[in-house]
Nucleic acid binder design. Structure first.
Lengths: 166, 166
DNA sequence: ATTAATGGTTACAAAATTATAACTATTATC
DNA sequence: GATAATAGTTATAATTTTGTAACCATTAAT
């Protein structure tokens, strides 16, 4: 195993170990305070970040089967958190974007997430926080980039396999 | 808002944005290849990392209600992946640890996770990988530390509130 | 002009996750 | 010794998430 392999293995160990902790901070704690499901939270988060997304895009971002995205979005529309938007050039495509109400709501959610994180970091000193910030920034930068290029059109695990097994 | 607040807000934004991407790499992809649920994967991961954990400890680590931990562990015992272990001093406590089979199985799962990550990082150059490794290491170090001190005994959201609202 | 491919929906089923209440056994506290 | 607290289980229900297949409308390809 060469150096690069070793490095990827190390990244894998560290990042995978962090997943449940992040879930505890950013999902579980927030759910109980907002009555929103994980997928709803992540849908709003994706829309906040991207401005607008197609149905397929949302499914891709959350790794959720396409048919379920319809249900997910229907619920959010009923709550007036998001709205549909037709593409002018291709009438198959439907964009989803946050409504004003949705933006306000998700801004509040971001506050709650930040407070949840703050509570977890109470005992961490200033120096470490600063370094943590740089690390988080960098990881987000890289992963956001690779996130874009990850297998497109993977709206159900079967469709996914089809693409991967080529 | 002072500097420290600004910094925590930035960490919150960056880490929360990364959650669905990590889920895609380390959970969704792996589930379909292993027929294991997210919670099963994370239980094995926690046991791999900690050696042994009490039922309550597992619930805390995964933010899962205590009664559900019983079901979760029962399934893993049926598959001979983990085993119970009594505490000598306190007969209420039951430790759970990986069996030999469980260790082998999770080692394979770690391989799959690493491969999943490798596929995502294909286009990232060596320099960036190195910096990503350092960042991941640091984040894991800090979060593992705070993870330990996060609200103990929070095995259901209601119990959780009880603790928090003090 | 047919045919294939893409984006999205409908309908349905199965499995996983979350939430509670009530309970046993054991240990700690007064 | 009575009472409270802790660790874990049983039972049950509701909700969320995952997985398929078949389908419509629109666009791309031949």
């Amino acid at each position: 195993m060469d150096d690069l392999d070793q490095e990827i293995k190390s990244i894998s160990d560290n990042l995978s170990h962090v997943v449940p902790i992040l879930g505890r901070i950013f999902i579980k704690g927030v759910r109980s305070k907002t009555n929103m499901t994980q997928q709803t939270l992540q849908t709003l988060g994706a829309l906040w970040h991207h401005g607008k997304l197609t149905m397929t895009g949302i499914g891709h971002h959350l790794s959720v089967p396409k048919p379920h995205v319809t249900a997910l979005v229907d619920r959010l529309i009923a709550e007036e958190m998001v709205e549909r938007l037709n593409d002018e050039n291709d009438r198959r495509i439907i964009y989803i974007q946050l409504t004003e109400k949705g933006r306000e709501r998700f801004w509040e959610i971001k506050q709650i997430m930040t407070e949840s994180l703050r509570a977890s970091l109470l005992l961490v000193d200033k120096e470490k926080l600063h370094k943590l910030n740089e690390s988080a920034q960098y990881i987000n930068e890289i992963l956001t980039e690779v996130g874009k290029t990850m297998i497109q059109n993977c709206s159900s695990s079967s469709e996914c396999k089809k693409e991967i097994d080529v």
